[in-house]
């Protein structure tokens, strides 16, 4: 059994989310024409709903502490902006690629993520070496994939 302070509220929330996903999948399978298409996802979704109920019961009976549930005890607030910057930069890179071209997008993304990951003060050495290193890395991989491995990387409609 567990004490109230060590109980996490995330577990029942995730149990509900997973059960909802399972229900959504089952609802989606009602539109399929062939039994071969729905029998597997419907079965797995049913199992997932059953497991979600089990997880909620386990939590309700207090059989597992937060730590036993694998819930991270580290604070999430630390550097949340840097994390968001990384994720948004990567998504933006994918969306901008067709317009700016791979090389320009790569340079831009590298610069944004470099800034997000930069904790040290900018010294003259870093101001010169980091951008040059970034450019060498981006151009190097661009040449490897486009010229050696013959991957058709986007040229970009706004490329100049």
């Amino acid at each position: 059994m567990t004490t109230g302070s060590s109980r996490d509220i995330s577990t029942p929330i995730f149990a509900a989310i997973f059960a909802a996903i399972g229900a959504l999948v089952i609802w989606d399978t009602t539109t399929y024409t062939d039994a071969d298409s729905y029998v597997f996802p419907r079965t797995i979704a049913s199992v997932m709903i059953a497991l979600s109920v089990l997880l909620a019961i386990q939590w309700g009976l207090g059989w597992a502490r937060a730590s036993e549930n694998g819930v991270s005890q580290k604070p999430i607030s630390q550097s949340i902006l840097r994390r968001l910057a990384l994720v948004f930069a990567m998504i933006a890179a994918a969306l901008l690629m067709p317009f700016l071209g791979f090389l320009a997008t790569g340079m831009l993304t590298f610069a944004v993520i470099l800034l997000a990951a930069m904790y040290d003060p900018w010294t003259p050495y870093r101001l010169i070496v980091y951008p040059i290193s970034g450019a060498v890395i981006v151009v190097g991989f661009y040449l490897l994939f486009s010229k050696v491995l013959k991957v058709p990387l986007p040229e970009g409609t706004w490329a100049f």
């Binding site: 990384l86 930069a89 990567m90 890179a93 994918a94 969306l95 690629m97 067709p98 791979f102 790569g106 993304t109 590298f110 610069a111 993520i113 470099l114 997000a116 990951a117 930069m118 904790y119 040290d120 870093r126 980091y130 290193s133 970034g134 890395i137 981006v138 991989f141 661009y142 994939f145 491995l149 991957v151 058709p152 990387l153 986007p154």
Partner: peptide, 23 residues
């Protein structure tokens, strides 16, 4: 780390794109 993180991130981007040429 300021160089390591963008390098790995860039490699994941170019690597993923190259599989099916799909953004």
């Amino acid at each position: 780390k300021a160089l390591l993180v963008p390098t790995v991130a860039f490699m994941t981007l170019i690597g993923t794109y190259s599989i099916r040429n799909s953004t």
